[in-house]
Design a protein around this nucleic acid. Structure first.
Lengths: 225, 225
DNA sequence: TGCACAAAGCTGTCCTACAGAATTAATGTA
DNA sequence: TACATTAATTCTGTAGGACAGCTTTGTGCA
């Protein structure tokens, strides 16, 4: 889990943890202090600090020191760049949290029209899977599921997060460990179970089946790195 | 150019300009190439690159090179203003999704120190509840729980969302249907159940108890409107 | 006390060096 | 020739040292 973490990732994480424990505007220890505290070179410490400066969490003044800048306007949740497998795993967990709730709400609230759209999205996906990986249709299925939940805040956040994670996937090698046929069968099975649960208005089962689907997918993706 | 510009500022600006002129996914020149192109040290170049990586504009792979990312995609999830009870209910559901997962992860991953902090937060809350509504201490308890989950993305998003919801609550009349004593007993019971589940490393129970806690709270708040 | 000045500490920047991953070139074999 | 294997090269990540220039602190003097 934390093995894919580079030195500067570790520095960033530890610095962030340190900053969470100090008052607004307070001066941080010097970079050389952090070097001794964290047991890594000043270059790595500075890299972590640079990231925090970019995020607006820290401000540095030449000759004086670095200072914690507590956040001013928490009106946004920033989808920070995915720069390590740990970042990816963490965003996956956020997605899992949102989408498992979406699945449960979908089972509770779906209309007949919603269900019809969901079924159609799944059928379109399965047809397309014969040709290629059908990533666009896969996203469409999950979007159709989100619509069923009848919560615009939830589906909007989930949609942005999913595309964020997805855009990372496009950059990486994206070699699947599964054959096309295996993948097709898996999706048929797992998506089918979700659709069934939503159709039966069984929210607990919908949540459980979606969790299984995402956890399986995560395992496959992460085992590829 | 401008006098107040540091070397790394200049590197950042020039790198950004360079990247604007290349295709998505294209490989950038090496850091040593930029050293010659911009006439500054590799440290300054790397600082500029680190900023761009943090912004998600660039991605670097050890041994290979740095690549332009583009597809600037939606980097933010906007916490839109709460202007109706429906908005409030929807954000509550998002919070429920995130925090129930946090509770489950907390039970799985909490260290002894995490647990100690959580218990202390609850004790502080209970003491303060004798005096007033102790909203700050209530938030602190939930923050302590989030720390246990060891997922900075999840806890950050949840923290911002919670403060967003709370800021609405502060604006409204905030008349509770419960007496202070009733509220105190309820929090003791429900928070206690969560702490117990986390202590026992029972993720399912932690999830369930947190759901119950939040759903009860939601019912109380919404029945007030 | 108040002020000037020296000393120490800090970040910003540059340099050199090397490990380790990824890519490319070279080489041997069928 | 075609291809698999190996070696050389390239590149980022990290370490450590050095110094300039700015800020803060401390000291001594009037």
């Amino acid at each position: 889990m934390s093995d894919g973490e580079s030195r500067s990732d570790s520095a960033y994480r530890q610095l962030r943890g340190y900053i969470d424990g100090v008052a607004t505007g307070e001066r941080l220890p010097s970079e050389t202090d952090f070097v001794q505290m964290f047991g890594m070179s000043r270059a790595s410490i500075r890299e972590g600090l640079t990231r925090l400066r970019t995020e607006g969490v820290v401000r540095s003044r030449k000759g004086s020191g670095s200072y914690a800048v507590r956040d001013q306007a928490p009106q946004m949740v920033r989808l920070s760049a995915i720069s390590s497998t740990r970042d990816l795993a963490e965003w996956h967990e956020v997605r899992l949290a949102l989408e498992s709730e979406v699945a449960a709400l979908a089972a509770d609230r779906r209309t007949e029209d919603d269900l019809a759209r969901l079924v159609r999205a799944q059928e379109t996906l399965m047809v397309r899977l014969i040709v290629d990986r059908a990533e666009r249709e896969d996203v469409a299925f999950h979007a159709a599921l989100a619509v069923c939940a009848h919560n615009s805040k939830l589906s909007d956040a989930l949609g942005r997060l999913t595309s964020h994670i997805f855009s990372w996937g496009n950059l990486s090698a994206q070699r699947s460990v599964l054959t096309a046929a295996e993948r097709r069968e898996l999706i048929a099975l797992e998506h089918g179970a979700i659709v069934d649960a939503v159709a039966a208005r069984d929210s607990d089962r919908a949540r459980a089946e979606l969790r299984r689907h995402l956890l399986n997918g995560r395992t496959r993706v992460l085992s590829n790195l």
